[in-house]
Measured scan of single mutants.
Amino acid sequence: NKASVVANQLIPINTALTLIMMKAEVVTPMGIPAEEIPKLVGMQVNRAVPLGTTLMPDKVKNYE
């Protein structure tokens, strides 16, 4: 099972992601793969992401 990116804290809307905000966890359904964490640093979320929520591609601005 592959790990996904999960919010390590509440991430407010329009916040630029940092390493400390994210952790890798095996979750269902799968979100953004954990190996993409370095790519996500500096990207902004387009909505608030509660603690423990899986980061889905549609929650990150300009994620492809």
Results as ranks from 00 to 15, higher is better:
8 N>W: 06
55 L>Y: 00
30 M>Y: 12
43 M>T: 03
55 L>E: 03
14 N>R: 05
7 A>H: 03
7 A>I: 05
56 M>H: 10
23 K>A: 09
28 T>Q: 13
40 L>H: 01
39 K>L: 13
9 Q>W: 07
2 K>S: 11
2 K>N: 12
39 K>M: 13
59 K>P: 03
16 A>N: 11
1 N>K: 13
48 A>K: 09
9 Q>L: 10
48 A>T: 15
7 A>C: 05
33 P>L: 10
51 L>P: 14
63 Y>I: 03
4 S>N: 05
56 M>W: 04
33 P>V: 05
22 M>S: 01
44 Q>F: 15
33 P>K: 06
14 N>V: 06
37 I>V: 03
41 V>E: 04
25 E>A: 14
21 M>W: 04
13 I>R: 12
55 L>P: 02
4 S>Y: 01
64 E>A: 14
56 M>C: 10
12 P>F: 08
26 V>C: 12
23 K>F: 08
13 I>W: 07
26 V>S: 07
47 R>W: 10
30 M>D: 07
22 M>L: 10
3 A>M: 11
28 T>N: 13
46 N>V: 14
55 L>R: 01
51 L>D: 10
20 I>C: 13
31 G>H: 06
30 M>K: 13
31 G>E: 02
19 L>W: 11
56 M>K: 04
60 V>F: 06
28 T>K: 11
5 V>I: 14
35 E>H: 13
41 V>M: 02
14 N>A: 07
58 D>F: 10
37 I>F: 01
47 R>T: 15
3 A>V: 05
3 A>T: 06
4 S>V: 02
53 T>L: 04
22 M>V: 04
1 N>E: 13
58 D>N: 11
17 L>D: 01
62 N>T: 04
36 E>N: 10
64 E>G: 14
60 V>D: 01
40 L>M: 02
50 P>K: 08
49 V>A: 04
58 D>W: 15
57 P>N: 00
58 D>R: 01
63 Y>R: 00
5 V>N: 03
3 A>I: 04
16 A>P: 14
23 K>L: 07
42 G>C: 08
15 T>C: 09
23 K>P: 03
62 N>Y: 11
58 D>C: 12
29 P>V: 07
49 V>Y: 05
49 V>N: 05
59 K>I: 15
58 D>Y: 13
32 I>N: 01
20 I>H: 12
28 T>E: 13
19 L>Q: 08
16 A>H: 13
19 L>K: 08
21 M>E: 03
34 A>Y: 05
4 S>M: 02
33 P>N: 08
2 K>V: 12
28 T>S: 14
37 I>N: 04
44 Q>V: 14
5 V>P: 02
17 L>N: 01
48 A>C: 13
14 N>Y: 11
13 I>V: 12
45 V>G: 03
56 M>N: 05
22 M>A: 01
6 V>T: 06
40 L>G: 02
17 L>S: 00
61 K>E: 09
8 N>F: 08
41 V>N: 01
57 P>V: 03
58 D>Q: 07
51 L>S: 14
16 A>Q: 12
11 I>V: 02
60 V>S: 03
51 L>R: 15
60 V>E: 04
32 I>L: 03
41 V>C: 08
10 L>E: 13
28 T>P: 01
3 A>Q: 10
28 T>I: 13
19 L>A: 10
52 G>K: 01
48 A>R: 11
50 P>N: 07
35 E>C: 15
1 N>R: 13
52 G>Y: 04
56 M>D: 07
55 L>G: 03
55 L>C: 07
47 R>E: 15
41 V>F: 00
57 P>T: 01
44 Q>D: 06
63 Y>K: 02
15 T>K: 06
53 T>W: 09
37 I>L: 08
64 E>Q: 15
46 N>W: 12
20 I>F: 12
16 A>R: 14
16 A>F: 15
10 L>I: 08
63 Y>A: 02
54 T>F: 05
53 T>A: 15
53 T>N: 09
16 A>L: 11
7 A>T: 07
22 M>P: 00
55 L>Q: 04
58 D>V: 01
59 K>G: 15
3 A>R: 12
26 V>D: 07
12 P>L: 09
51 L>N: 12
10 L>Q: 10
20 I>K: 13
43 M>K: 11
54 T>D: 05
23 K>G: 09
38 P>G: 09
29 P>N: 05
40 L>P: 01
3 A>L: 09
41 V>R: 00
33 P>C: 11
7 A>F: 03
24 A>K: 06
53 T>Y: 10
34 A>E: 06
45 V>K: 00
24 A>M: 06
36 E>T: 05
